[in-house]
Design a protein around this nucleic acid. Structure first.
Lengths: 224, 224
DNA sequence: GGTGCGAATTGACCCAGATCAAGAGCGACC
DNA sequence: GGTCGCTCTTGATCTGGGTCAATTCGCACC
């Protein structure tokens, strides 16, 4: 079937698959299944035992965490091809954040116990997981630095820049996720995000369109 | 020799050692060596190739990162028994942050290539590394949530609470690191940290002494 | 026991971004 | 095609924490 073909092709392209190799992945994926879920679906809730490792095939999901004094943020937004949430699965601990579909998504569900079993048996898979976690740690370090050192405008600019192709150096940065989610990911209010996009437009850095803002010059956006 | 005895005993108590098991650790530690370094020493610089995995035996080190628009922060402060910076070692990539001794330190240096070799050979070590990275990822998630949702006072309170023993519920939170480092870790200026400590003192939450602030009631500090 | 110097505290002021409160689009569904 | 219920944007105001400057503290070294 065509749909299953593309699914496998997408899985194959993910960096995790590359690192683990086809053999290990075959074993891993055998009892997994895909789900098609509408925007807004909660994949799992903060505090639940981890039952699945997720590989996102299409759309984006947000990892949402509650602070202890109340209030929630989005800690990370994952796109197609990315895997979450390995730490909870590995440590057999409750999920630290909840996960919510920010758009309609297609996601591959890998049973947690099966993943742990394969992990204990396969060095290749283990190695790929180490690399995955390393990359994810670096993402979070990057975000912490961003939050601590950069202004709202710089954070928005960096976020948009990561959404336009690096080689083209320009293009339309689609923002299919709700504004509130993006604002939370960037550590600001939706109002401030909106104002900042408006400010970037008057500065000529982008043009706001229906399918998201169009960036004129990617490098000019980041460096200033 | 007594000193080597205690070194090994400390290594043995670290969670990473527990997870990896004595056999794997024996192999890992064979070509490692310890160093005694004064406060202010730079262990490695952001952008250098990773040459060592570090296990901190005594003192504290700060992971310091530069933002791309200039300015630096401290992303994390590690204490005795903790391992850093596995991601750079694993990925054979340059260190993302620099590391600086915030106090006098004793640190075990594990050659990077040796670590990677053992990692590729030992499932136990691999598994321990996966768990280590998972815990470190969670630490960073926690910090991101803290930065996004909590006020300066709440962040300082949480930080102090983690420095007093949980069972006692009170005690002296030694702050041997320079104030500027702690402030950077918490995403604020040294001035604000100072003022916040003063404010917590007038509220009766702590008493400031020479060997760091003494917390009267740990749980009152966190929950308010 | 000065005395010199960097780190920590305190004080006065200011500003980026939050908050509160209207509007403006924009689909979905009758 | 209207109108209900969104999300998004814009406007006005407020405030937490940053900035800059002046002490004061702690302590190594003479």
């Amino acid at each position: 079937m065509g749909k299953r073909e593309t699914t496998y092709a997408m899985v194959e392209r993910s960096p995790f698959f590359q690192a683990a190799g086809a053999a290990a992945m075959q074993d891993l994926l055998q009892p997994s299944f895909t789900q098609l879920l509408p925007k807004g679906t909660v994949l799992f809730e903060q505090g639940e035992e981890a039952e699945f490792l997720h590989l996102l095939l299409e759309g984006s999901v947000g990892l949402q965490a509650k602070g202890d004094q109340g209030g929630t943020t989005i800690v990370e937004i994952f796109g197609a091809g990315e895997i979450f949430v390995a730490p909870a699965v590995v440590l057999r601990l409750p999920y630290l954040p909840s996960a919510m579909a920010l758009t309609e998504i297609r996601v591959l569900m890998i049973p947690a116990q099966h993943f742990r079993d394969r992990l204990a048996a396969s060095l290749d898979l283990s190695r790929a997981t180490v690399e995955l976690l390393s990359r994810h740690w670096r993402l979070m370090v990057d975000q912490v630095v961003d939050l601590k050192l950069n202004s709202v405008e710089a954070r928005v600019s960096r976020f948009l820049a990561r959404r336009v192709s690096e080689e083209a150096g320009a293009g339309c940065a689609a923002l299919p996720e709700p504004r509130a989610a993006i604002a939370a990911r960037l550590g600001m209010t939706p109002e401030t995000l909106s104002r900042t996009l408006a400010a970037l437009e008057t500065k000529g850095r982008l043009r706001r369109g229906a399918r998201g803002p169009t960036v004129r010059d990617r490098s000019a956006l980041v460096h200033s």
